[in-house]
């Protein structure tokens, strides 16, 4: 199976390259550093979300509350930091947003593991409740004057160059966060007892209980981590666009789940890899960002994503039904 999975990622990579060459072939602007840098930058937030979704899908569950959690985390963080006129190190807002996200995620875990509820329904409920709570009791206004440390973060580039027309472009440092988190999640999933427990419980929950795995702990771990990642993605998102808008990220859950599924994770649980997931994210980002370059109006974005998703899942389903016979 490992080999086939590796193959999946290989094919995904090929498709990605093929698409890049098609887009690049029809428009040189694709290969411009401005475009490439911006593609990488726009994959950061979705990538971080996707890592969380991967985790929860591997565990055999699903989470559709994470965009709500992300918004809740960054909005409260920013609002509070503005209130205290925060100027300290950028680590603080990150840690705060992450902590809020973690708490929310633990709430999901509590509901799922204590009352044996279905993750889809629980996260539907918590997502709705958290969004509603935020907008009804915390605020609906867009905060555009972010604390300085967050603005500095959005300007942080690990590589800059000045183009011939005098404009300066840079490779956003936020991408490093995605790389670091990917490596961390990959390590957790591959090399820690908890991570392997997540795979085990996604493979067969009853067997996991019988084998003495601490299943409730695994729920708290999984959903807590999803929350933490959502909180992180949220603060990165609001910093990169330099706005804290409580209406942001609505509907992001579907696109992220689509990316993770494209990356080869199985919704029945127990299967999926970080590398596949990241490739899936790149694929979606590439489609979204490159349509205009090949002369297709951006209106077509959703159609394109829909077609890719349908084709990919249909092919996978077809192949597995062939393999099963």
């Amino acid at each position: 199976m490992d080999k086939i999975l590796r193959k999946n990622e290989f094919w995904l990579f090929c498709i990605l390259l093929l698409m890049a060459f098609i887009v690049g072939g029809s428009n040189d602007a694709f290969w411009s550093r401005t475009n490439l840098f911006s593609l990488f930058k726009s994959s950061v937030v979705m990538g971080i979300f996707a890592l969380g979704v991967l985790l929860v899908i591997v565990s055999g569950g699903i989470d559709i509350s994470f965009p709500a959690f992300a918004v809740f985390s960054f909005y409260i963080t920013v609002k509070y930091l503005l209130y205290i006129k925060f100027t300290g190190p950028v680590v603080i807002p990150f840690a705060m947003s992450m902590a809020i996200g973690t708490l929310l995620g633990l709430m999901n875990a509590f509901l799922i593991s204590t009352f044996k509820l279905i993750p889809l329904i629980v996260t539907l409920g918590t997502g709705s409740a958290v969004t509603g709570f935020l907008r009804a009791f915390v605020g609906t206004g867009t905060l555009s004057n972010l604390p300085q440390p967050l603005i500095d973060f959005s300007r942080w580039n690990i590589y800059t160059e000045t183009l011939s027309d005098g404009s300066v472009i840079g490779f956003s440092g936020s991408f490093l966060i995605l790389i670091a988190l990917s490596l961390a999640v990959a390590f957790v999933l591959r090399r820690t007892t908890l991570g392997r427990g997540v795979y085990a419980m996604g493979g067969d929950l009853t067997a996991a209980v019988r084998a003495g795995l601490p299943v409730p702990k695994l729920y708290y771990f999984t959903y807590g981590l999803v929350g933490a990642l959502a909180g992180t993605a949220g603060i990165v998102h609001c910093s990169l666009i330099r706005l804290a808008n409580p209406r942001d990220l609505e509907g992001a859950e579907m696109e992220v789940i689509a990316a993770v599924v494209l990356g080869g994770a199985s919704l029945t649980g127990g299967k999926g890899t970080v590398s596949g997931t990241i490739l899936g994210v790149f694929l979606i980002v590439l489609i979204k960002g490159s349509l205009i370059l090949v002369g297709i109006p951006t209106d077509w974005q959703k159609v394109a994503i829909g077609v890719v998703l349908i084709t990919a899942t249909a092919l996978t389903a077809y192949r597995s039904s062939k393999g099963g016979r």
């Binding site: 490992d2 085990a200 493979g203 067969d204 009853t206 996991a208 084998a211 127990g270």
Partner: peptide
Amino acid sequence: SLFPNLTVAENLALS
């Protein structure tokens, strides 16, 4: 009570 998605080695050693 085995884990179908894990390797033989892991099934044996996980407990």
